[in-house]
Amino acid sequence: MKEVKIESTLFVFENLEELPKDVAFLMQKAIEARGKAYAPYSNFNVGAAILLDNGEIITGSNQENASYPSGLCAERTAIYYAGSQFPAAKIVRMAISATSATKPTTSPIPPCGACRQAIAEYEIKQETPIEIYFMGETGAITKSASLANLLPLIFDKSVL
């Protein structure tokens, strides 16, 4: 048996003011999208904003359903819309913001596993990394230079 060590490198910005202006603008779009979430069951609102290489910004918010598996996270709402409307465009970066009606969200909240897998599909397809910035309602923002950095053991078509 041998031990394998996997490391990820993340960058932490203390607040929105520390972000580069273009990233702060994208995060503001994610915050605005968060306000459009439909989350009557979890009371957990998430907004995502995606910058495409053609300059378009696509936003999405989580949309819940009484049949829980039928809902969709903000990240996948945005990424699937981008893929359907701009199939040739590459995703440059994604900003995510989440808040809870039941407790403060002051720590960065990363994408869930299902969203990481969906983002991975697009990162692999476009053969370029997707920067991901994520935060709670307020406070620090975490940056990952790529989805592969957040999900180092990616499940992709090579195993099928």
Rank of each mutant, 00 (worst) to 15 (best):
C112I: 05
K103A: 12
F11L: 09
F134A: 01
Q117R: 11
Y81E: 11
K5F: 04
S61L: 03
S84F: 03
A98L: 06
A98V: 04
A78G: 05
I109F: 11
A114W: 09
F134E: 00
A140C: 04
A82R: 01
E127H: 08
L147I: 07
C112V: 05
S107A: 13
V12K: 14
E131C: 04
K5C: 03
F44C: 01
S107C: 10
Q117F: 05
A78D: 09
P40M: 06
A37K: 01
F13N: 07
A66E: 13
A140T: 01
E131I: 03
A88W: 07
I79M: 04
T77F: 01
E64Y: 04
P87K: 10
N62A: 07
L26G: 06
L72P: 00
G136L: 04
F44L: 03
M27L: 14
F25K: 15
E127A: 06
G83I: 01
L26V: 06
T128E: 15
V23L: 13
A37Y: 02
K90Y: 04
A74I: 01
A66F: 08
Y38S: 10
E131H: 09
A118V: 02
N45Q: 10
G47F: 00
R76F: 00
K5R: 11
D22T: 12
K125V: 00
Q85C: 02
G113K: 13
A66Q: 10
E137Y: 06
K90N: 12
L72Y: 03
G55E: 14
A82F: 02
F86V: 00
L16N: 13
P111S: 13
E64I: 01
E64W: 04
E123V: 01
E18T: 08
V92H: 12
G47V: 00
I130H: 08
N45L: 05
G55Q: 15
F44S: 03
L72E: 13
A39G: 02
A33Y: 12
I124M: 09
T102Q: 15
M27K: 09
A78H: 08
K36M: 09
F11M: 10
R34D: 02
V12I: 10
A74G: 02
E127F: 02
Y122E: 14
E121W: 05
P40K: 07
N65M: 07
T105Q: 15
A49R: 12
P108N: 15
I50K: 06
T105I: 06
E32F: 09
G139R: 12
M27S: 07
G83Y: 06
P87A: 05
P20L: 15
K29I: 04
G55R: 14
I79F: 02
P111I: 08
S100C: 11
